[in-house]
């Protein structure tokens, strides 16, 4: 039953309770009031449900992948630097003019 359907049901029960004698009338109205209180407790339920539908990736897994990528980049940079040094030495040592 949706929230709207519940509210309609509460209204229907309220009208039905009007014709009862006491103490049944007060007791029936109390049943309805307790339902209304429960409904008020669900005031944020739609927002919470919408947010629950959002599935996010595991942040630790993302962090591990970032760390791996950073390490790989550092290693790559070291390789490039070493290559450039070697290449520069080759040029200087052999007198290569490009």
């Amino acid at each position: 039953m949706t929230r709207e359907e519940l509210e309609a049901e509460i209204q229907r029960l309220k009208h039905g309770a009007e014709g009862l004698d006491e103490p049944d009338k007060t007791f029936k109205l109390n049943d309805i009031a307790q339902l209304e209180i429960e409904l008020q407790g669900m005031a944020l339920a739609d927002i919470t449900a919408a947010l629950r539908d959002i599935t996010l990736p595991d942040l630790n897994e993302m962090k591990a992948q970032i760390d791996a990528a950073v390490d790989a980049t550092k290693a790559h940079e070291q390789r490039v630097n070493a290559f450039n040094t070697a290449f520069g030495l080759l040029k200087t040592g052999l007198g290569i003019v490009l």
């Binding site: 209180i37 429960e38 008020q40 407790g41 669900m42 005031a43 944020l44 339920a45 927002i47 919470t48 947010l51 629950r52 959002i54």
Partner: peptide, 15 residues
């Protein structure tokens, strides 16, 4: 019902 509201608000903040 009030506890439910508090819980939902905390969940919204956390999310």
């Amino acid at each position: 019902a009030k506890a439910n509201l508090v819980g939902d608000l905390e969940e919204i903040k956390q999310k």
